[in-house]
Design a binder for these strands. Sequence first.
DNA 1: ATGTCATCTTAGAGATGA
Length: 258
Amino acid sequence: MRLATWNVNSVGARLPRLLEWLESRQPDVVALQETKCTDEAFPHMPVMALGYEVVHSGDGRWNGVAVLSKVGLAQESRTLDGHPEPRLASAQCGPVHVTSVYVPNGRALGDPHYDYKLAWFSSLRERLASFDPAQPLVVMGDFNVALHDDDVFDIGRFAQSTHVTPQERAAMQELLDWGLVDVVPRPGKNDRPFTYWDYRAGMFHKDLGMRIDYVLATPSVRVVDAFVDREARKGQGASDHAPVVVDVEVDETGGDAP
DNA sequence: ATGTCATCTTAGAGATGA
């Protein structure tokens, strides 16, 4: 079974590339972020034509997340308690429960949006309490945090920056401590598996990136392979994020086994 | 090194967010 997560930076602007990518990579389950459209405007027709069922949560210009599944879609959820912005969508996809998240950016230290980011993380951690770490479960998406210093191209350039503060890293570590494993992908180039490169200043060309997109999985989701699909970041009309693709094996019985 | 995108407002450049 192939899982993937991709911040597409507008599903409308990215539609030709998204469809081409779905056809070539053949993922079974995809988490999308920053679709930037209403539920009505999501391109259901061409995505369904490729064999996917869709749960989308979006209200227009900003944010927007989705789960696409070829292996069934049930128990859909489109909200995170206490937070009206469309930043979470989840569903049971065959044997694995999948959540797509778009964690708030934080904007700047001291900005109210930074506190909102930490509060959102806290709510996400509380939401995990309704699940069992023994069941096959994946939370994947754009977490807007670089967990380790090596997850940015030069930690020295991130003084007084968001994404690398101890508070943000601790908030994400609490998710891992519940029982999730950070599935670190093989790098697409050089030695580090960056997933995001700013559009400006030739950052992608110079591989000055960040690892802020993650696949977090419970141990019953056995990882066979994981890689950053750097090809999808190349050329005209690319998102500023690359997809993370993870091949897994999951027991059908999952956490329900004795 | 604030250099690129995408979107919305409201009719075409500016604001906003990343």
